[in-house]
Simulated assay, not measured.
Amino acid sequence: MSERELKDLNDVKEFSITKDRKLFSATSEEIEQGLTTDIYFIKTREILEKLGHSDTKVVAEVFASSPGIVAGIDEALNLLKTKEVKVWALEEGAKIEKKEVVMRIEGSYNDFGIFETAILGTLANSSGWATAAKECKEAAGEKPMLCFGARHVHPAVAPVMERAALIGGADGASCILGAKATGQEPAGTVPHALILTVGDTLEVAQAYHDLMPENEPRTILVDTFQDEAVESLRLAKELKANLDGIRLDTASERGGVTPGLLKEVRARLDQAGYEHVNIFISGGLTPARIKEFDKLGASGFGVGSYISSAKAINMTMDLKEVAGQPIAKRGRIPGITNNPRLKRRI
């Protein structure tokens, strides 16, 4: 089958996946073809065509199941730009209420209905990630909060997740593609693997200082080989003013980063005259833990799984008008829902 939009079940039957496919994630072209849609939308398209309703004008509304931050609007709009439709939507990053309409589409359902699955999924996941990031950023206040969640999701959606986190309020993201998608540069230092390979934290720290661009903060992991306080003082003594900060990411097998550990490291650095050394914390952070560490002197936070595993804000698409007449399924109110916050986008 040629790379055109699916029209009927025969097109679905003719499509096959090649044996040399490396990833099972959908490409942009496959999403635009309708290959990620639920099969019942293809059946709907075929039946509407046979019954002579392919050009029937409808108004569809997308609403949220719970409050939060909406994200994914731009991707949804990109899917609709080639269609004969009018679209009203909220801005990316807007705060939304439960049941609020986030998007309204006017046109022939047979023209845009094939994208219902993709639009809802895009908005649902992105909004969930953005909302979780917003919660973490509010807990961090003025201190930097970076998204480190790419390793917890499939690589195909990692940049989507981290872009959503940035929309939600994260100050930076480690995923290269995710950061670039919002016009930012990726943020992060080095993994434990580098220190383990070299065999000495100080040697890595000195190499990082010598080799990395001047605008890169000199923040180094200190939990790989030695006691975190001892390693922090060792680095500070050698790098002095060149050491911007240390990062605590203690393994869960050793109890993770605890309030007691943070207090000790902060106190020992201060007592030795290294008040300028910041303490960046990562590993299992939640808004509650961020607030606790913030009070104890943490300087910044790297959040992974709390954002990447955030529950999606489920989205629903309802037809509210057909051929100019108000309509709705039972339990819903027929007719267009008033939301003055919606802006014409297409």
Rank of each mutant, 00 (worst) to 15 (best):
R163A: 12
M161R: 06
M145Q: 04
A158S: 13
V160T: 14
T131D: 01
G169K: 06
A156S: 14
C175L: 00
K137V: 02
A165H: 03
P159T: 02
H154E: 15
K143G: 04
A150V: 01
C175F: 03
A158L: 06
G128H: 07
G149W: 07
M145K: 00
A150M: 10
M145A: 14
C136L: 07
A156D: 15
M161W: 08
A139L: 02
G141R: 01
V160H: 12
A165K: 04
N125L: 15
H152L: 13
H152D: 15
F148D: 00
P155H: 07
A132T: 02
H154G: 10
A140Y: 12
E162F: 11
S126F: 03
A164H: 03
R151T: 07
L146R: 09
G149R: 02
M161Q: 13
C147A: 06
A173T: 11
A165T: 07
W129F: 13
A132E: 06
G149S: 05
A130I: 02
A124F: 05
C136R: 08
N125V: 05
A130F: 05
W129V: 09
F148P: 00
A173M: 11
F148A: 09
P159F: 12
G172C: 06
M161F: 10
P144M: 04
H154R: 13
H152M: 14
A139E: 00
W129G: 00
A164T: 02
G172I: 03
A165R: 00
C136M: 09
A150L: 04
A173Q: 13
C136Y: 10
K143H: 11
F148C: 01
A170E: 07
A156K: 15
C175E: 10
A132V: 04
A130G: 03
A164C: 04
P159I: 04
H154F: 11
M145H: 04
C175M: 01
E138P: 05
A133Q: 08
V157Q: 05
A132K: 08
V160G: 08
E135T: 00
P155E: 07
H152C: 14
E142F: 15
L146K: 03
M161V: 14
V153Y: 01
S174T: 15
A139K: 02
F148T: 09
K134Y: 15
K143A: 05
M145V: 10
F148Y: 10
C136W: 06
W129S: 00
A150H: 12
K137A: 01
P144V: 03
T131K: 01
V153L: 04
D171W: 10
P144I: 01
V157T: 15
K137H: 06
G168Y: 14
P159K: 05
F148G: 00
